[in-house]
Design a protein around this nucleic acid. Structure first.
Length: 425
RNA sequence: GGAGAGGUGGCCGAGUGGUCGAAGGCGCACGCCUGGAAAGCGUGUAGGCGAGCAGUCGUCUCGAGGGUUCGAAUCCCUUCCUCUCCGCCA
């Protein structure tokens, strides 16, 4: 969300930034709303001031026992009262109108974000690992999993519907191992604080990070109006909502392992086979709360942390800088890590590392006090470190053998009780 | 689910209709004092919005929203949250 005062001072910059997002110039409309609002406030303050002055005089008159004077003053104030009430109502409406208009606008893209339409215009900035050349046809993860008898989509459909999976035995454990491994790296090597948040969230929290109001069809709601977290970015970031933090608390580096729930409303027909796109999946998340000065460095640190996970698992991946058309509304700049999937013979997103600037902080009213006691909005960042479900896919496809067994990456073996290979029973 | 208690500034805590954005204490900052420190003394110590180049001024905010009143932290209604006891339950 934007500061209307900033828009007023940066009309061209703002309209240009919206244009990059494919949005018509907004500043005229917004400034007009703000002008009306200001005029209302000015008149309202004037009326309130008069009312307060007279009311105090009534108090004094009564204290002095001058009832007639008090009576006179009361009549005067009665009129002002109506004026104040009208003004308050108008101000409330106008403020809400302005806020609603601002709430749906996307973040400003960073200067170094390349222009582009969609994911085909993203720019590769880094590449890690050798793609394995199999002397046989590489299978997709679901072929492997089903053949092992450890991955069952039919049972999942029976109990929950499509886009769910049931993992069993060593595969279930492998998924758990991946989550624990990643979390441990985040805590021990990347110095993040583990957080285990609620999975059901207030609407306010969903608004704070930008999932609401625009993208409500992407998430699930409960019967009592709570939202199932689509990513733990939401609870972790909203931990600082409506706070004024001390500068000493920053940067605040958090991590957590949670399930994520997504309706995938707009994705019917996409990735229908396998575990790529599910309604429910585990993900290790990184969230950093920082100052404006710290933020860019924290973004690079976070990117390295995510890359580090895949390197430890020895999964080939490339790092993409998302183009303007593919960068999420809440974000100024996003890197995606795409893991190589031999079975699909393609790269697929496995992590997304983004910087939001103060866009989320304004929505959350999350601030900090600097060395001089001045209050500023924090800057927020988040990234996956990494998606567990997709990491499972990447491990299976990259570590598969001709007979359909799967080697377990060395880094995971301690989490698998020393198991080195998963074979059909 | 039933019965009760409560939500006030960074924290504790007073305030039950009148100049209260709010006593007092703690904490913190600065100054004095000291060789240095502690103690002591003094001063300061919310955020939003609006006006102004600025000093500053006005206004709003005592969980949230609404109402009563000339005037609300104080009265009424609604709602959220916390705590205690009982019941139920993982």
């Amino acid at each position: 969300m934007f500061d209307i005062k900033w828009i007023r001072d940066n009309v061209n910059l703002f309209d240009e930034a919206m244009k990059r997002r494919g949005i018509e110039p907004q500043s005229d409309k917004l400034l007009a709303l703000d002008d009306e609002r200001k005029a209302t406030i000015l008149a309202l303050n004037e009326a309130q001031k008069k009312r307060n002055t007279l009311s105090k005089q009534i108090g004094i008159a009564k204290a002095n026992g001058d009832d007639r004077k008090a009576q006179n003053l009361m009549l005067k104030v009665a009129e002002l009262k109506k004026e104040v009430q009208r003004g308050e109502e108008k101000e409330r409406e106008q403020t809400k109108a302005l806020r609603d208009a601002l709430a749906v606008l996307p973040n400003i893209l960073a200067k170094d974000v390349p222009d582009g339409e969609d994911e085909t215009d993203n720019v590769e900035i880094d590449n890690f690992g050798e793609r394995v050349e199999f002397p046989f046809r590489a299978k997709q993860h679901f072929e492997l999993g089903e053949a092992l008898g450890l991955m069952d989509f039919e049972v999942a459909a029976k109990i929950a519907g499509s886009r769910f999976v049931v993992l069993k035995g060593a595969l279930a454990r492998l998924e758990r191992a991946l989550g624990q491994f990643m979390l441990d790296v985040q805590i021990n090597e990347n110095g993040r604080t583990e957080v285990n948040p609620p999975l059901l969230l207030h609407e306010k929290a969903m608004f704070g990070t930008g999932q609401l109001p625009k993208f409500k069809e992407d998430s699930f709601v409960t019967t009592d109006g709570r939202w199932l977290l689509p990513t733990s970015e939401v609870p972790l970031t909203n931990m600082v909502r409506e706070n004024i933090l001390s500068i000493n608390d920053l940067p605040m580096r958090l991590t957590g392992l949670t399930p994520n729930f997504r309706s995938e409303a707009g994705s019917s027909g996409k990735d229908t086979r396998g575990m790529i796109r599910q309604h429910q999946f585990y993900k290790v998340e990184m969230v950093t709360i920082a100052t404006a000065q710290m933020a860019e460095r924290e973004h690079e640190i976070m990117l390295k942390s995510a890359q580090n996970i895949l390197k430890k698992l020895n999964i080939p991946f490339r790092t993409m800088l998302l183009c303007s058309g593919d960068t999420g509304d809440s974000m100024q700049k996003t890197y995606d890590l795409e893991a190589w999937l031999p079975g699909q013979n393609t790269y697929r997103e496995i992590s997304s590392v983004s910087i939001a600037g103060d866009w989320q902080a304004r929505r959350m009213n999350a601030r900090y006090r600097d060395e001089n006691g001045k209050v500023h909005f924090v800057h927020t960042l988040n990234g996956s470190g990494v998606a567990v479900g997709r990491a499972l896919i990447a491990v299976m496809e990259n570590y598969q053998q001709e007979d359909g067994s799967i080697l377990i990456p060395q880094a995971l073996q301690p989490y698998m009780g020393g198991l080195e290979i998963i074979r059909a029973q």
